[in-house]
Design a protein around this nucleic acid. Structure first.
Lengths: 112, 112
DNA sequence: TCCACTATTCGATAGTCGTTGAAATATCGG
DNA sequence: CCGATATTTCAACGACTATCGAATAGTGGA
């Protein structure tokens, strides 16, 4: 996982609506939620939601699957964990930062 | 730690130069690095570096202190850990996401 | 005091982001 | 096939981001 990928993921999450949408999807679990439901919960226009889900998909943070006429979005936990791994890898990189991120950063996915 | 604060922090890190700068500062430890050194390492103009350090400071991710005529910037590990705590708190929020972020997310700082 | 050094502020500019309504696409039920 | 539902694509717009050079402010040494 290189810096550019991490930047994309962080940029995707660095927005009020996208962070809220991602949170909803995390809570929804693997089943995910249909686009319309997310847009309604966030209080934004359907076309705006599409714009944001596209950003999240390009960052590999969510996946899309069709169920009848609805498009369900679900959080990609692996990608999210890679990002966290990269950040915690940077944190405590051989230094005494006094945080508990060290043992966490040992996640194998960090070096992907 | 509310969502808006997390969004600010993520936005601050969601840029090639700022993520690189933050990484440099993490590696530099509490002593930090002077502005000129960071700008040189990143290959950007001094005024551009100021722009980015301001973003990082507004997000509380770095601190600034004067040493003679140089301004040293240092990573704010507490703030960084709060952000990670928030993200891991969202991740695995009572769900089986299959990641190791659950036990990590138990960090007390998450609820700050 | 005067100069060199370090970094910031200012002004201008090109590019990207986020939003929406309207139109188009895809799917299902009858 | 046709209408209804769900979502995306398109075009346009205002706002913000990132960049740099030039000018300004703060610090230390001679």
């Amino acid at each position: 996982m290189d810096a550019a990928t991490v930047v994309d993921a962080l940029a995707a999450l660095a927005h009020e609506h996208r962070l809220a949408a991602f949170r909803l999807l995390v809570e929804a679990g693997p089943a995910g939620l249909p686009a319309g439901t997310i847009a309604e919960r966030l209080g934004i226009a359907p076309s705006s939601l599409t714009f944001h889900t596209r950003e999240l998909m390009q960052a590999r943070l969510v996946t899309q699957r069709r169920v009848s006429r609805q498009l369900f979005y679900a959080a990609n936990f692996d990608a999210m964990n890679d990002v966290l791994g990269y950040l915690t890898e940077n944190c405590c990189a051989g230094e005494a930062c006094g945080l508990e991120c060290g043992p966490t950063g040992s996640a194998g996915s960090a070096a992907r």
